[in-house]
Simulated assay, not measured.
Amino acid sequence: MSSTVTETAAGEKRPRPRPPAREQAPGGPLKWAFADCWTIVRRGLLHYRRQPSNIAWQLGFPVVSVLLFVYVFGSAMEGGADAYKSYAMPGMFAMTMAFGFMNTAMLIAIDKEHGITDRFRSMPMSPSAVVSGRGVSDLIGAALDLAVMAAIALIIGWRSDGSVLETAAAFVLLLWLRFALIWVGVVLGLLTPNQEAAGNLFAVAFPFGMVSSVFASPADMPGWLGSIAMWNPVSSTANAVRELFGNPGRLGDSWIEQHAMLMALVWPVVVTAVFLPLAVRKYQRLSL
């Protein structure tokens, strides 16, 4: 056991100098918040390398989705699958981003169930690092999902008719939606008692992604269902990216549909403003 005092040459005992607290170190707490966040991000990225099955699932889901929704369902649409894919692909981009919060919730629940979250909380690390690190690593994974789905879309013949800047802005809007929903996933993951319960969140994600303008215009739905669909944040993002891609669909006369671009920016701000503080507060109040 190490001593907490030192002895001088004259035999005088003095307290051993302690290393400065992280808050008093150069750069202060902000520097350590970024450093701890990056440590969590690296941990999340290492899981992709050490658990290739996760990569296979993330890359396989877009492929199966395109085959199912474009070629199976699209063949029943007017004009067939070739005509339908110009409407469906932008919606599927948005749906993939919407369903992503399930992965976030599942990973958070696994860490909590295995005691990893408690271990993090016992360490001298920034209290926001686990939440922010999960957000950044999931956003990187979402960018990979989008890249894979865009490659698949190009292979089947879908093209963006917008300019380079408009196309880039569309993908930014998609990631902006995913960024907001990350915090929903974090909160749900912290609330669920175990991994099995987190898996049941698909019952929440499925109607959230499907009852929208992803595959059909809300104007073609029954009145009450169309109202729910048009006010779904996924619908605003899907309609906005269709406009930027130059693949506009049929929109109704409602205010929310006519201002899809504005709401594709506003909805994620609202969701983030509500769920990000909840995520940090819930993490900080977890019992050891």
Rank of each mutant, 00 (worst) to 15 (best):
V5D: 15
S235E: 10
R285L: 07
A76F: 15
F99C: 01
V70E: 01
L181Q: 00
A10W: 12
D220P: 06
I40N: 08
P29D: 12
V164N: 09
N247Q: 13
T104Y: 01
P127H: 05
K112S: 00
F120K: 01
G223D: 09
L173K: 07
L107D: 12
R121W: 03
R16H: 09
Q284T: 14
T192V: 14
S212I: 00
V271F: 05
A170Y: 15
V214C: 05
S132E: 04
I116S: 07
L177W: 09
S128E: 14
P90Y: 10
T39K: 15
M125G: 05
F171S: 03
L188N: 03
A203I: 07
P248V: 04
L173H: 10
M106V: 09
I155N: 02
N54P: 00
D138E: 14
A94K: 05
V266H: 04
P248E: 08
M77Y: 03
A197I: 07
Y48M: 15
A21P: 11
N239Y: 15
N103T: 13
I156P: 15
P222S: 03
E78T: 12
W158H: 06
T104G: 07
P222N: 02
T237D: 06
A168H: 01
F206C: 04
A150N: 06
L68V: 14
T167L: 05
L201T: 04
S235P: 00
A170K: 09
I156T: 04
A279T: 06
Q195C: 05
R43I: 06
F73P: 14
M125V: 12
